[in-house]
């Protein structure tokens, strides 16, 4: 068996074992909840088996997958941004502003322009992180995080100030004609993920990106611009995450509301999905679906009195156990 195939097979074995193990650990962790391990297991399994859960997960899949597939690209270059959260938010803000305040009608062209504009604003926000890294040596983990909080501040300012509508801190909902259906939203994100995958596999930037992470000096020596690669990656990452935000607004949110310090969380979940998907955009899409399903379970759990943040722990468990089992399995495969 050649080395590549062997690696894939052992990786797949690790993935399956990791997923199974994470289900077991999750069940055991159910003991922390008011349902107890057994009761929680029942709900977990029946939710995972139900088609409805998967369909109701799709609206969340959209921003998570846009974040995850774009972050996969960034992480491949060793650019550990966690800024997708802020980019999704600002993408939504940008799309809202353009449609509601500037274009003011909902033609297909207007919606397309709004989505692209969301991407553009996301790209600028991402590019800022890349620029700070390249220009001033600012750690991208921290600068992107601070920018996420600033994005929260921007949303909170808008919904409690200039864009506020009525007594609550929120904007007016978009009129019915300004929007897109779920299938279109999913399609947009899947196409974006696919394009990212093609970008990595078939363009020279894919080679540049991997070299920058794995052997920076080799990349430099043979003509790859480190700074330009990081900037390109940061822009594309922000662009796709921003599009995710725009689509999220047009399909699910329809209006902006004030946000807590935890943010919306889609960008953060996207981080987990990016790693879970093996730092490949297509893998990240698949992982995002899984993460979105867990996320959509939170309303079911709330019905039973379980804290909705419990799903965050479950998501972490999945990532950690898949990480553990794939590492062990691939290591065994190399022996």
């Amino acid at each position: 068996m050649n080395a590549r195939l062997r690696g894939l097979v052992y990786g797949a074995i690790g993935l399956v074992l990791g997923l199974l193990f994470s289900v077991l650990v999750s069940m055991a962790l159910g003991a922390f909840t008011s349902l107890g391990a057994l009761g929680f297991s029942k709900i977990l399994l029946s939710s995972l088996m139900s088609k409805d859960t998967w369909i109701s997960a799709l609206p969340y899949f959209v921003p998570i997958a846009a974040s995850a597939s774009s972050l996969a690209l960034a992480y491949r270059a060793g650019f550990i941004t966690i800024g997708a959260e802020g980019q999704v938010m600002l993408g939504a803000v940008a799309a809202y502003w353009l449609l509601y305040y500037v274009i003011e009608h909902g033609s297909i062209a207007a919606i397309m322009v709004a989505i692209l504009f969301a991407g553009l604003v996301g790209a600028l926000y991402g590019g800022l992180v890349g620029g700070l890294r390249v220009g001033l040596g600012v750690n991208e983990i921290l600068s992107s995080l601070m920018l996420n909080y600033i994005a929260i501040g921007i949303v909170n300012y808008l919904v409690a100030g200039p864009w506020q509508q009525g007594g609550y801190t929120r904007t007016a909902p978009l009129p019915a004609n300004m929007g897109i259906g779920l299938s279109v939203a999913v399609l947009v994100v899947v196409i974006a993920g696919l394009l990212l995958e093609l970008f990595i596999v078939f363009t020279k930037y894919g080679v540049a990106i991997d070299s920058v992470r794995l052997a920076r000096k080799a990349a430099q020596t043979y003509g790859v611009g480190i700074a330009s690669t990081i900037i390109i990656v940061a822009l594309i990452q922000g662009f796709v995450a921003g599009i995710g935000g725009g689509v999220l607004l047009l399909q699910l949110l329809r209006q902006l509301r004030s946000v807590g310090l935890g943010g919306w969380g889609y960008g953060y979940m996207g981080i987990l999905a990016a790693w879970l998907g093996g730092l490949r955009p297509l893998g990240a899409l698949a992982a995002s679906l899984l993460i979105a399903v867990l996320y959509s379970m939170r309303s079911t759990l709330q019905l039973y009195g379980v804290s909705d943040s419990f799903v965050l722990a479950l998501e972490a468990i999945i990532v950690l156990s898949v990480l553990a089992f794939t590492t062990l399995s691939i290591r065994r495969g190399e022996k």
Partner: peptide
């Protein structure tokens, strides 16, 4: 240094060919 400077470890010889010729 052969690994890390001339060649990218963990990548195939094909990949390393493309990197070596990147700007040629």
């Amino acid at each position: 240094d052969r690994l890390g400077w001339a060649l990218v470890p963990g990548k195939s010889l094909v990949f390393n060919t493309v990197l070596g010729l990147y700007s040629s």
